[in-house]
Write a protein that binds this DNA or RNA. Sequence first.
DNA 1: TGAGGCATTCAAAGCGCTTTGGTTGAATTT
DNA 2: AAATTCAACCAAAGCGCTTTGAATGCCTCA
Lengths: 344, 344
Amino acid sequence: MNLKELAAKLGLSQTTVSRALNGYPEVSEATRLRVAAAADKHGYRPNTRARGLATGRAMAIGHVIPISSQHEMVNPIFGDFIAGAGETYSKAGYDMILSQVEDHRQEQVYREMRGKRNVDGIIVHAPKMGDSRITMLQEIGIPFAVHGRASELTGPYNWLDVNNKSAFQRATDFLLDLGHKRICLLNGLESMDFAFRRRHGYEDALAARGITPDPDLMLAEEMTETYGYRTVQKMMQTANPPTAYLTSSIIPAIGVRRAIEEAGLKMGKDISVITHDDDLSYLRNGEDVPQFTATRSSVRDAGRQLAEMLIQQINNPSGPPLTRLLEAELTVGRSTGPAPERTA
Amino acid sequence: MNLKELAAKLGLSQTTVSRALNGYPEVSEATRLRVAAAADKHGYRPNTRARGLATGRAMAIGHVIPISSQHEMVNPIFGDFIAGAGETYSKAGYDMILSQVEDHRQEQVYREMRGKRNVDGIIVHAPKMGDSRITMLQEIGIPFAVHGRASELTGPYNWLDVNNKSAFQRATDFLLDLGHKRICLLNGLESMDFAFRRRHGYEDALAARGITPDPDLMLAEEMTETYGYRTVQKMMQTANPPTAYLTSSIIPAIGVRRAIEEAGLKMGKDISVITHDDDLSYLRNGEDVPQFTATRSSVRDAGRQLAEMLIQQINNPSGPPLTRLLEAELTVGRSTGPAPERTA
DNA sequence: TGAGGCATTCAAAGCGCTTTGGTTGAATTT
DNA sequence: AAATTCAACCAAAGCGCTTTGAATGCCTCA
């Protein structure tokens, strides 16, 4: 069933039917109802492509997920972020188009999206330091919004980020207050912008107490469970092992816990752990009392908000760029406690 | 830059340019090259919507993720499945359109997709027992493929599934061979089809050895870490606790391990654990020797294959329905060992 | 009574592509 | 030399919608 047929069935012109369905004022209430009823009865839905062609809007947002062929890793926060964004889209009548793209094809893909005009805007995931995609998109001239930021980049753009620096600063402070001196940072890959900011938060907190960061205690890797596990194992064999760990995600934190317990130690007593917690739906941090002390910020909520910001920008392209900095909450769980007395 | 402009620039008709770009034979090689060069130079990309309108193909596949508003859980396998499917799509030139839909709106959304014609086919995720979506889609008449199957449903359709029953049967057998008699099953929600099949595998294996399944040992819940943790805690307080656990995903298995170690026991010695492992990229089961003994089947690969099957079906709608049953591999890790001697 | 205003409705153009059904002129055949 | 074939190209229709610019008929008001 298409417009033409529906109009014929109603004895009306396509114009009137189209207007009736799209809520234009120049249609009498009586016919509007008649049209609505008929449309409903026949299950009429305007063809997206035809409508898009006529209006010039795709009513779709593109999500480009960078994928590196080496380590075929899907960012675990991705599902939750998408779920949040999806909520916004379905309310606003947008579709979500997902594409995974290898790093070296990013530019090409953006230009393609622009040319093919199958999206009205783009959400950029996992920005790197001084991410070239941002300048690229500005140049191409397509609305976009970034989940995170890119340091070293001037020029305004839409972004939403967690205050990574302050979160890690506070987490480090919290450990320092408990008497910990040697705190091991299990960061994400330093090419990622968020990891860079987190390290600075950690370093600043130490510096504020006159402690020089020990490079051996600052790791930066892909955030897997094994990463946490292995790191603790290695650290335990050093002369002066850390008494606390600060991890960038709950996944390596789980590995840290495993290594601690396998060594016959008790997390929260012998060794303290704080993690950043993206509040993923399938990896909740305990229930009543959180398992890990954590700096928490919901990725799902970030998705919801960033999608809203992008849509707003699309509807008002000349408006100022929208930015939002979320503060993480520091919630105390069972994984932290005072630094143990020196036994040596 | 659109076709018309490009054609004008070349002094050719739109027809010829279109044909040159789409590889039709009735264009001389010389002009074809000339056209290709010009298109490249001006960054010409055919407008998706216009092309779709003309061809009647959307060149997009819809993924509908059921979302229950109660427990806002995003299926953790989702990211990896999508990543796999995405690989196939990008090779075949398809876009992926994602929508999350509450259970009660599913039918409406499918009809909408059909009416709006913005997808050429649909991938159905997480089928339930006798899932009504399948009959619905057959009736609506839109190509689709299911990741999993729906028991109690006759009539052919495209699906790809892991042999859940045989996987759990083999896992249970493995534990029985090690002398375990009381094996606790931590299944997913029994409304899900895969959970139903897994339970049957478990029960059959027990029955084959003359053991009547103990209902108290068969749990079925949302597969969280806490679920695994709590269950073991509860079980340990019973008169006759299980000596082995069989979990439906690596996430509850992590919870099981935590409870075991917190109780001062050793996994693989005092208590055995087998899990089904979807081979998620961010939750790898150890590296050299797997942490958990597991029945493994890559979800990412499933995504790749199912997407291929659907595209094949779209290109040849009259062909027979495609089905594929994958066998999981049973890999031995460090989490299983002989049942401990009775001490009572 | 006739001009102007208003509420409804419509025909047709246009969005950018593919595809049908030609046309043209050169090469080949008879 | 006329008829046929063929390669290469083109004009125009059509996909299903929105939107522009008119048309229609009924009221209202001077």
